[in-house]
Write a protein that binds this DNA or RNA. Sequence first.
DNA 1: GCAAAAAGATATCAGCCGATACGTTTTTGA
DNA 2: TCAAAAACGTATCGGCTGATATCTTTTTGC
Lengths: 227, 227
Amino acid sequence: MSRSDGQAWEAASGYRKGEAARARILEAALSAFGANGFKGATTRQIAEEAGVNLPALKYYFGGKEGLYLACAEEIVERYRRQMLGPILEAQAGLEADGSPAQARASLKIVIAALADQMMESREAEAWTGFVLREMAEPGPAFDILYGQVWAPGLDLIAYLIGVARGEGVSRKAARIEALLLVSSLSAFSTARPMSLKYLAWPDAGGERFARVMRIVDERIDGVTGRS
Amino acid sequence: MSRSDGQAWEAASGYRKGEAARARILEAALSAFGANGFKGATTRQIAEEAGVNLPALKYYFGGKEGLYLACAEEIVERYRRQMLGPILEAQAGLEADGSPAQARASLKIVIAALADQMMESREAEAWTGFVLREMAEPGPAFDILYGQVWAPGLDLIAYLIGVARGEGVSRKAARIEALLLVSSLSAFSTARPMSLKYLAWPDAGGERFARVMRIVDERIDGVTGRS
DNA sequence: GCAAAAAGATATCAGCCGATACGTTTTTGA
DNA sequence: TCAAAAACGTATCGGCTGATATCTTTTTGC
């Protein structure tokens, strides 16, 4: 029978064979949706890349939209897995020492981890594109990604900016600063092809990534008020 | 006869009726491509919104891709028409007084004009989306838009940053700063739906636009080195 | 080992897409 | 006024898309 639920599984002990196929489909879908969007990606293309036949998509995810939503949930998990460490590190530092200087240091940790996802990671390229596209044109996955990724991430950054600045900034102004700061990183994710061409860079990894981050850190010093 | 050339016209004295239809198609295409991308937009949807029948698109533009390229050329013209004033103003100020302070003032003028296009202008919303999408996923119009819009715009901004900073910044570092600065504005164009939701704003016009610009100006002060 | 459930494959559907062959009406210059 | 060019309309084509009805094979629990 069909099991288009696609949820509440994991621990069920039986029929493990299909998990591999399901994972391959999800991986292919993440890549295809991230690169071409919901409408641009085709189910046949995803099925072929995953090495399955077409009805398998309906079988595992109920259809194209179900697959899209499953991608969003997968992205949330990967985002958490990747950002959990840096976020905990930033929070721990701030709990030990609530000074503006420590808040600035924590902010740099969080931003560096975020930038690493958006710029360096080849595997994160697919889901970064997925997320940013969904924020630009809200689709079925907007609420999931906004609520689970953007809102908490921006809240943390805005909070750190507020602490680093002391009392000199309103809550809303800190939020605007957070938006501007994060979206400045999109130069090397959303607009990467253009940025690389403009800088005559073959890629944005290694020393080049470090160079950008040095400048971003200077911007953070500026946002958080330091000469 | 078909006249799919779509070029070298303007001054020809005869058969003016079709110009209106051509303009309506271009307007509809700009809106549709900007909102949904090349693949997402359909020729039927464009034809219907323009109030013409389907073959009119081939008649005037040779096909879907020809229409897409015509949109890019139209965007270049609109961009120049909108930015020419502020750019001339910025250059005039710098020629009269080549000081870092004047460069910073000129930079603020250019960025404000750019931000106005990306945030405020409802009519510019369509072509802003078109441009940013093409930079993210290079398509047939990438070279036109990069060469005619992005490269000269970023060059000017990077140059102004260099002058404002004095000798303390390399040419390449100024280019990176320019990329980060411009892409920070994309929070309110590309990612507008998300940003508005995060700030609980119904729109980004009027006083809200001014508030963002005050913060952006502070960022410019930071980039160009001032406490 | 054997019924049952899961997993996978084949074939096909209706719908929309971009394109265009072809006919008709309108506008133009002389 | 009249032929030519331009502008517009109808009808339809082949191709691709997402979906699904139906059947076969594999894996599982007992």
